[in-house]
Computed example of a mutant assay.
Amino acid sequence: MPTMSNDHIVKSYDEELARLTGEIQRMGDLALKELEASIDAVVERDSDMATRIVESDKEIDGLEEVISQDVIRLLALRQPMARDLREVLAALRISSDIERIGDYSANVAKRAIALNRVDLVRPVFSLPRLGKLAAEIISEVLIAYRDRDADRALLAWARDEELDGLYTGMFRELLTYMMEDPRNITACTHLLFMAKNIERIGDHATNIAENVYFIVHGTQIPQDRRKGDKTASVVAKMAPPKAKGEEPDA
Rank of each mutant, 00 (worst) to 15 (best):
N116R: 04
I113G: 10
R86A: 10
R100F: 00
E99W: 06
L115A: 07
R111A: 01
A109M: 10
P80I: 00
R117N: 10
I98Q: 08
V71A: 07
R78N: 05
A109I: 13
D97I: 00
I72L: 15
A106Q: 06
R73T: 14
I94C: 09
L115H: 04
A76P: 09
D119I: 04
S95W: 11
Q79R: 12
P80L: 02
I113R: 12
A90P: 13
I101M: 15
I94L: 10
R111V: 03
V71C: 09
S95C: 06
L77N: 10
N116D: 13
D97W: 02
D103F: 00
R73H: 12
A106P: 09
Y104Q: 03
L77A: 06
R86S: 13
D119Q: 01
A76L: 01
G102F: 05
Q69V: 12
D84H: 12
L120R: 14
S95H: 13
M81A: 07
D97G: 01
S105I: 05
A109L: 09
G102N: 13
A91F: 03
L77M: 10
R86H: 13
D97T: 02
I98D: 05
D97L: 02
D103I: 01
D103Q: 03
K110P: 08
A106S: 14
Y104P: 01
A112C: 10
A91Q: 07
V108A: 01
E99K: 12
R78E: 05
E99D: 14
N107S: 07
L115W: 03
S96Y: 04
V71Y: 00
A106Y: 04
R78A: 07
L92V: 00
R111M: 08
A91M: 11
I72S: 13
R86T: 14
I98C: 01
L77P: 03
Q79L: 04
L85K: 13
L85F: 13
I94N: 12
D103G: 02
I72V: 14
L77Q: 11
L115S: 03
D97A: 04
K110S: 13
R100P: 08
V71R: 06
R111Q: 13
N116C: 14
L77V: 11
I94G: 11
R111F: 03
I72Q: 11
V108T: 09
R86N: 12
L92W: 06
L89C: 06
K110Y: 09
V121F: 00
V121Y: 04
A82P: 00
A114D: 13
Y104W: 01
L75M: 13
A112R: 13
I98R: 09
A112M: 09
Q79I: 02
A76W: 06
Q69N: 15
S105D: 04
I98T: 09
D119P: 01
L85N: 12
A106K: 07
L115Y: 15
Y104M: 00
L92C: 05
A91H: 06
L92K: 08
R117Q: 14
D84E: 15
E99L: 09
A90T: 08
L89V: 15
D70A: 08
I113E: 09
N116S: 15
L75P: 07
V108E: 08
V108R: 11
A90G: 05
D97Q: 10
R93V: 04
R83H: 08
D103L: 02
V108Y: 05
V71T: 06
S96G: 11
R111H: 14
L85C: 10
A112Y: 11
V71E: 03
